[in-house]
Design a protein around this nucleic acid. Structure first.
Lengths: 209, 209
DNA sequence: TAGATTGTTAATCGATTAACAATC
DNA sequence: TAGATTGTTAATCGATTAACAATC
């Protein structure tokens, strides 16, 4: 019963993939799935899936496998996906706009609740029905709405100061699209979306042969 | 002299971060940097940087550190960034358009050389000065232009078939924005941009306390 | 029941860190 | 020279895989 041990972060990062695959299975009308079958879909070994899940409890039945609907519910609950999350978006440029308009977020419980930008030209205008507010309002708005998570979509040279303001406003999770590594205190989670680095790590293999 | 050993993929994925940090240092006018200083900027230990670099050669000077410009050049050469890369983009929806218009790619040697879409409404129109071609043209165009890399920006339920076509056309590296795990043969590299999963792995920590 | 598959422990593998001789 | 920092080896840490008793 390892339920109380803190799961490694690698494991936490795989859970959303399990959840997604289970959603697809559910939509396909599949009721039950083995670790083997689930693993084949997402290129993960059966042993790894079972080990990963064991950090959180016992969800399967020997000889049978996992009930798709039930396992999905459990994982969603573990990940906190049984509720919606209000997210602040900082940066209303091309990228910020694309993020606001992206359907996928809302469909998965990620609600852009406020948009901020430092440019006076942008403030007052709306994107996707949400009014852009000045970045100086971050502390008050974030506090008011109890926002705990933010997306950074500002230029690299502005990202750190934005992160500082967000952290000060008690935001504890940041998804940054800015191509720079952010410094944040312990207890604040930062992840990056960095397509350029990802591509540059593949050119290595292409260049090699 | 471990120069000939294949570097682990984790190491290859860190190289672009080193390169980027060195670019910033160069722009700041810094000439020399130690593994310690570089590490502090990107939250990596000095030992890890030295170990990582050792897979590719010897680039520093004892007692001094690394020449920023020279190390950057070396890493860019290792990553194949001393040339431009022609990339095929499949999917000309909102996301595809945002990708074409994204300045960052071109600035970093990633050139969208062709755009494909399966919708007859889209074919013939242009995005960012590039004409959208029908997906059925992927094999011929990719062969003609010698394209080795592709970006997938189609809905999840179309992504696998697109990947299959690309692989058949000898594309060997794919960056997929589709929320599904792709099955590709050995020798083909696939990486994912998956902001939803990334956010869902952070809600875990927020939900927890 | 017999066959299948789980949850878990132990073995293996791989990545990170520490330490230090070499040397600028 | 003395101080600093590399490149590398060995030690440690952590993650993955294999194996199997438990049991549906």
């Amino acid at each position: 019963m390892s339920r109380t041990i803190t799961p490694p972060d690698v494991v936490v990062r795989r859970l959303p993939l399990y959840a997604r695959s289970l959603r697809y299975l559910l939509r396909e009308g599949v009721n039950s799935v083995s670790s083997q079958e689930l693993g084949e879909r997402i290129n993960v070994t059966a042993a790894q899936i079972r080990k990963d899940l064991s950090y959180f409890g016992e969800f399967g039945k020997q000889g049978i496998g996992y009930d798709v609907e039930r396992l999905l519910e459990q994982i969603e609950q573990i990940l906190g996906l049984d509720r919606a999350w209000a997210v602040a978006l900082v940066g209303a440029g091309h990228l910020g706009e694309a993020i606001v308009r992206y359907e996928g977020f809302r469909a998965q419980g990620i609600h852009i609740a406020a948009i901020f930008d430092a440019s006076p030209d942008k403030v007052g205008h709306s994107v996707g029905g949400i009014e852009i507010q000045h970045s100086t309002s971050i502390p008050t708005v974030v506090a008011q709405r109890g926002i705990e998570m933010a997306i950074i979509a500002v230029p690299a040279d502005r990202a750190q100061e934005v992160a500082d303001v967000l952290v000060k406003a008690n935001v504890r999770a940041i998804l940054s699209y800015a191509p720079t590594v952010l410094q944040v205190p312990d207890g604040v989670w930062v992840r990056y979306i960095d397509p350029i680095s990802v591509i540059h790590s593949m050119t290595f293999y292409l260049a090699r042969d």
